[in-house]
Simulated assay, not measured.
Amino acid sequence: MSLLLAIDDAKERPQIVEVGEQGEYLLVLYKPQQVASSVNSIVYRARLVRAEEPEEPGIPVVVKVPFENTRYGRSCLEREIEAGKHYADHPSIVRVYGGKVSKRESYVITEEAKATLKLFLRKGGLLPTRQTIEEFTLSLLDALETVHTDNYLERGPHLHRDVKPDNIFLYRCESGFRFHTKLGDFGMWGSQKEAEEQWERFTIAGTPNYATPDIGETPPSPSSDLYALGLVIYQIVAKTEILPEYPQRMQERDLEPLQKDPLHPILVKALAQRESQRYHSTGEMRRDILQAQSMLKSRNAVYRQQVPLA
């Protein structure tokens, strides 16, 4: 049975499609429930159940289906599925359960998240700085470090190339009061060498607003992903879903309203105009973030000493 037909034909009764290399999973699609859409695709909610235990509740997943099954769209899904298999066990990368890419139909199945960071910001979700550091930044740095130091198929370091709030997913921790953050949507993922070759042909992947200011002069590198992460941190700290009209023109003076935030020095360096002044590795950025975290803990300890408990 075709997955697309299953989505289109599903009524009250569930439709079942075999997925997995050995058909060990069944994808159960109930009455179509669209959970998100973008310029390129639509996302449906579903469940994965094991073939030998079809009555079990299963695993909540989402199925992303492109609006138009174009050659470019198929290429992005192939990258996402390939990256999902490669990073399957990483705690800070969205898990991919499978998918299919063909001229007739294409889709990818991933674990279901509570929300995207973009939706969280749109609804006014505000985080104190310490939680920003712990739940978001360090988790995303773990994911990017794995990607940047990866020599997959001996092709050298890799890049995500599309770090932005839309591709950052929130999962509620077991305690129920905190979020775990994961990086997803690896449709632009590829080796740094491939990105450099595309850049030489004037082909630049990713979202323009999150591209580096000197993208016309400097080829993509790990620093490019870290610049985009800097913009994401800016959005969290500034409590805004919307970037300035020309984010690449942001100067240090534009960050002055955030001067009291411990992350301010990190934003200044991450969003510097020239590549030579920005972060070049996740380790470098993590060091400064841990220092900011330590400073914040010390500040909180002093505050608790000054304010006696009732």
Rank of each mutant, 00 (worst) to 15 (best):
L27W: 10
V28D: 02
P32F: 10
Q33E: 14
Q34C: 14
S38T: 12
V39C: 03
V39M: 13
R45D: 06
V49H: 08
R50Q: 15
P54Q: 09
P54T: 01
E56N: 10
G58D: 03
I59Y: 08
I59G: 07
I59D: 07
P60Q: 07
V62Y: 05
V62H: 03
V63K: 03
F67L: 12
E68Y: 14
N69E: 07
T70M: 10
Y72F: 09
S75W: 14
L77P: 08
L77D: 05
E78W: 08
R79E: 00
A83Q: 08
Y87W: 13
D89H: 10
I93Y: 03
V96E: 04
S102E: 06
K103T: 05
E105Y: 09
S106T: 15
Y107M: 04
I109G: 07
T110C: 09
E111D: 11
E112M: 14
E112G: 03
A115P: 05
A115F: 03
A115H: 09
T116G: 06
T116Q: 05
R122I: 12
K123H: 13
K123S: 01
G124N: 06
G125K: 13
G125P: 15
L126H: 09
L127E: 05
T129P: 07
T129Y: 03
Q131H: 07
Q131W: 13
E135V: 00
F136D: 00
D142G: 02
E145P: 04
V147E: 00
H148Y: 10
T149N: 13
T149W: 06
N151W: 06
N151Q: 13
Y152Q: 08
Y152F: 14
L153M: 14
R155V: 00
G156M: 08
H160K: 01
R161I: 00
R161N: 03
D162C: 02
V163E: 00
